[in-house]
Design a binder for these strands. Structure first.
Lengths: 130, 130
DNA sequence: GTTGACCTTCACGTATGGGGCAATGTCTAG
DNA sequence: CTAGACATTGCCCCATACGTGAAGGTCAAC
């Protein structure tokens, strides 16, 4: 399978696949003329990478899961913290996201506090609730 | 007043002040030897710029307020939408922040949903409330 | 032999607010 | 006269996951 086919089968792009390889998340053989060649496992692997990215992990995070990316991930994730590093990475990522959300929320609230006429109905209802 | 003094008086850095000038938010005269020279208004202006940035506006946003930056801003902001462009910029910025917060929250929730053992007490209480 | 679809590497652009160098010029005090 | 504190411009760096060309090689079909 060449890179175009793999991209089509996984709903990604050739650019993304080369990027994953550059990041050490994907391996490929080469034809005599230098084209990347992929085995059938590559499809599962790419799906897993994209699945994790879409779940809020970063590329760096996904590197921690690289050992498990050739089997179906739902299996891995279904049974509690399957691997301790997965747990740690997940927990750290959740904390990072929570922190970023908090920081942006702080900015948002400062802004609304200074310019109260900017409050959205959503803000108003949250204010009522508080 | 030279750049170092202005930086010290406003709690910023020389690098930041040159950046503000590059962005058109600050003006300076020059000595014969090329040093930047600032008048006393510069201090108010820089404070206002940094105040707006700290309030969640971007550099681009602050450019919209450039006409008002030589007077004390609290005055400007105290009387409802003092200037219609201020209102528009503020509203847009609030919307942008809200959107970013929503996007990050979506990621966060997906992650917690997939790895429920990662939920923080905060998540749990929010879940109860819902 | 040529068109066209496929592939390659290289490398800049995205948004944000500066940080941190380098290489060099200027001013002031001892 | 020289040290050192200050100034200048300019350029690369940060994180993020690729997008979007450029300039060119490869392969199948007609």
């Amino acid at each position: 399978m060449l890179i175009g086919e793999l991209a089509a089968r996984t709903g990604s792009t050739t650019r993304a696949l080369r990027y994953y390889e550059e990041q050490g998340l994907l391996e490929s053989g080469r034809t005599a003329s230098g084209y990347r060649v992929y085995g059938p496992n590559a499809e599962t692997r790419v799906r897993n990478v994209r699945d994790l990215l879409a779940s809020g992990f970063t590329i760096e995070n996904v590197k921690s899961f690289v050992r498990y990316l050739d089997t179906d991930l739902p299996e891995v994730f279904a049974y509690s913290p399957a691997c301790s590093d997965g747990y740690l990475v997940g927990a750290q990522r959740v904390a990072e996201l929570a922190e970023k959300i908090a920081a942006l929320t702080r900015l948002h609230d400062i802004l609304v506090h200074r310019m109260p006429w900017l409050a959205t109905p959503d803000d108003a209802s949250r204010k009522e609730a508080a």
